[in-house]
Amino acid sequence: MKATYINPIFIAAREVFRNMFSIELERGDLRVDEKIVPNHVINVSIGITGDLNGIILFSFPEEMVFKLVEEMAGMEFKEFDTFMASAIGELANIITGNAMSNLSESGYACNIVPPQITVGLNKSFSTASKKILIIPMQAGNKSFDLYISIKE
């Protein structure tokens, strides 16, 4: 998998977090793995089709999802429910959509598939490539991970 995919995805995530939450995302050290085993409980996977194929998976700690959705809604939530899942799924959807727009400037024409939300640890995800890139994202005092499995 080419590292050239990484920057457009990071830029999209950084802009959306900056605009919507006034949070400056920072990228941690890239890791490579052979499979996706998310570290966090709330996982949003978005399929990519077209010139590139695969998935981008956003792995969020539950506390962070509560914080983001509560900030957007201006109300408190007692439990993770369909509303929260849909709100955080749309956030991942917007970031991935913007990332694909950025990638189109490099000549890749791609579409995205609506987000799938999975809750819980030790879930496995099928992947398109043998190498998975993992980007740790620092968002203020919280962090989440992006798993990227894309091939041409």
Binding site: M20, S86, A87, G89, E90, L91, I94
Partner: peptide, 18 residues
């Protein structure tokens, strides 16, 4: 309804702020 309104929340904020 929950699915639609959750998505709408994020969509509207992103649209206005982005």
């Amino acid at each position: 309804i929950m699915q639609f309104s959750g998505r709408l929340l994020t969509w509207l904020i992103n649209h206005v702020t982005g």
